[in-house]
Structure formats: structure tokens, C-alpha cells
């Protein structure tokens, strides 16, 4: 499996990481190396195997619809790198009302 530049860039974009030119090659090589290693899973016959999703065996225990207290605005904002009044402040978002 070959990790070409385009694929590597699209991964970085999804992961929201940017690497400088010299780092880029290094990361790409490491990714290539590890993918070659894990390729050994192809030896297994997995057609009829049910994939494990969660390590807990029992069904989810549900929570009653009862209120607990919220943390309070000041605590929630206490670690914010930038705040404006009661809000977290972030750079301007261009598309109003639209998330991807």
C-alpha cells in the first residue's frame, strides 16, 4: 500500500495537523512502515468473524432523565484560551447557520 503525497495531505487535513516539508517525509515513511507491518492481518480468514465494537459485554445501562446541576459558566469558561463575556471566542466563522 503506497501512501502518495496527495493521500498524506488529505489525512493531515482531516486530522487538522500541518507539517513542515522535512517532517512530512518522515511521517509519511513511518506511516508506510507501520502499514506494512499491520498488513499481516491479511493472513487471517475473517469473513465470518463478528467485529468487536466495545470491550464491555453487557447492554448499555441507561440514565434516568433527571437533572443534575450544570457546572456554571465561569467554571466551564475557566480554561478558555479566549473568552468574550459569557462566550468562548473563536475566529470568525464564515458560513452562518451551517456546519459541514
Amino acid at each position: 500500500m503506497e501512501i502518495d503525497d496527495e493521500l498524506a495531505r488529505s489525512i493531515l487535513k482531516l486530522a487538522k495537523l500541518k507539517l513542515r516539508g522535512d517532517e512530512f517525509g518522515e511521517y509519511r515513511r513511518r506511516l508506510q512502515e507501520i502499514l506494512e507491518y499491520v498488513g499481516m492481518l491479511d493472513e487471517l480468514d475473517l469473513k465470518s468473524v463478528v467485529p468487536t465494537a466495545c470491550a464491555a459485554d453487557s447492554s448499555t445501562i441507561l440514565r434516568d432523565d433527571d437533572g443534575t446541576e450544570s457546572s456554571g459558566r465561569d467554571r466551564i469558561l475557566s480554561n478558555a484560551p479566549s473568552r468574550a463575556g459569557a462566550f468562548f471566542k473563536v475566529p470568525r466563522i464564515i458560513d452562518q447557520g451551517g456546519c459541514p
Binding site: 479566549s82 462566550f87 471566542k89 473563536v90 470568525r92 466563522i93 452562518q96
Partner: peptide, 12 residues
């Protein structure tokens, strides 16, 4: 997200 035309940022 709350937007305010008078500032450069958005507010969450």
C-alpha cells in the same frame, strides 16, 4: 455559534 458584525470573532 453567535456572530456579531461589529467584531472580528464568533462566539460559542
Amino acid at each position: 455559534n453567535v456572530h456579531d458584525a461589529s467584531t472580528d470573532g464568533s462566539f460559542v
